[in-house]
Amino acid sequence: MTIIKGTLYIVSAPSGAGKTSLLAKLLEQSSTLCLSISHTTRPIRPGETDGVNYHFTDRGSFVRLVEQGRFLEHAEVFGNLYGTSADWVSMTLKSGMDVILEIDWQGAQQIRRLVPETVSIFILPPSLPVLAERLRARGQDGEQVIAQRLAGARDEISHYGEYDYLVVNDDFERALADMAAIIRAERQRTPRQENGRIALISDLLSGVAPTQ
């Protein structure tokens, strides 16, 4: 059986745009799509699990991993470090699985330089007031942190033009359908299809047309 190398996806969005919820639902719908679990130095939040939401680590350990070249990309966001395991991503793509990296624009730029064929998606909120409302609804941050996140959102959004696809999360089900459509379309690209359809293509090209 021919193993088709998986596709690497980048999904970015300002905090509160609904990226995590959309990806969780998208992953439920596909058995060949998985999410890379990033390493981070930020404190674990209520309801999170180490190794599921993030690989939580201390700053010293994170820096050592950077020095060892173990990250495909890494960045500092709001004073916390985030990084993507290069070994895990490479191994998973070689197995034929598609991998999603849930990272910011800084990490996305690093990934594009290393893996130019990466497919990137940017998720926009319908408006800044809605974004602020969603951040407050979380009940995790004070007003000062929320103001910080909103300022960071404008910076993040300014990089939308660097991405292949743009999805507006004004309606959850529609945004989810848009993301699923992107994944389906990418899987139909000729290089991916021909690797898994060699026997069919060979038969169609060499076969004799039926006579009346």
Score class of each variant (00 low, 15 high):
1 M>C: 03
2 T>F: 11
2 T>I: 13
6 G>M: 07
7 T>M: 04
7 T>K: 09
9 Y>W: 03
9 Y>K: 01
16 G>V: 03
17 A>D: 08
18 G>N: 03
19 K>H: 08
21 S>C: 05
21 S>R: 10
21 S>K: 09
25 K>C: 02
27 L>S: 01
27 L>F: 03
28 E>P: 00
29 Q>Y: 00
32 T>A: 02
36 S>V: 09
37 I>G: 04
41 T>H: 10
41 T>V: 09
41 T>D: 12
42 R>P: 07
42 R>L: 09
44 I>C: 02
48 E>D: 08
48 E>C: 08
49 T>M: 10
50 D>R: 05
50 D>A: 12
52 V>Y: 12
53 N>Y: 06
53 N>H: 14
57 T>G: 00
62 F>G: 03
62 F>Y: 05
63 V>D: 00
70 R>S: 10
75 A>C: 05
76 E>K: 07
77 V>H: 06
78 F>V: 09
80 N>V: 02
81 L>Q: 12
81 L>E: 13
81 L>C: 10
82 Y>D: 02
83 G>H: 09
83 G>W: 06
86 A>Q: 14
87 D>E: 15
88 W>S: 14
90 S>L: 13
92 T>F: 06
92 T>L: 09
93 L>T: 04
94 K>F: 05
95 S>C: 05
97 M>C: 11
98 D>N: 14
99 V>E: 01
99 V>S: 00
102 E>P: 04
103 I>V: 15
104 D>N: 10
105 W>G: 00
107 G>V: 02
107 G>N: 04
108 A>S: 11
111 I>Y: 06
112 R>D: 01
114 L>S: 09
114 L>P: 00
114 L>G: 01
115 V>A: 07
117 E>Q: 15
118 T>V: 15
119 V>P: 01
119 V>W: 01
121 I>G: 01
126 P>H: 02
128 L>N: 05
130 V>F: 06
130 V>K: 07
132 A>S: 13
132 A>P: 02
135 L>E: 12
139 G>D: 07
140 Q>R: 15
144 Q>P: 01
146 I>C: 01
147 A>I: 06
149 R>E: 08
149 R>D: 08
150 L>R: 03
152 G>H: 13
152 G>D: 14
153 A>M: 08
156 E>T: 14
156 E>A: 10
157 I>N: 03
159 H>E: 11
160 Y>G: 00
161 G>P: 04
162 E>S: 11
164 D>H: 13
165 Y>F: 15
167 V>I: 13
169 N>T: 05
169 N>F: 02
169 N>C: 04
171 D>E: 11
172 F>L: 05
175 A>I: 09
178 D>Q: 15
178 D>E: 15
179 M>L: 15
180 A>I: 02
182 I>G: 10
186 E>Q: 12
186 E>M: 05
188 Q>G: 01
189 R>V: 01
190 T>N: 08
196 G>R: 13
196 G>W: 05
198 I>L: 14
200 L>A: 08
202 S>W: 06
203 D>F: 08
204 L>W: 08
204 L>D: 05
205 L>K: 14
206 S>E: 13
209 A>Y: 10
210 P>F: 07
211 T>N: 09
212 Q>K: 03
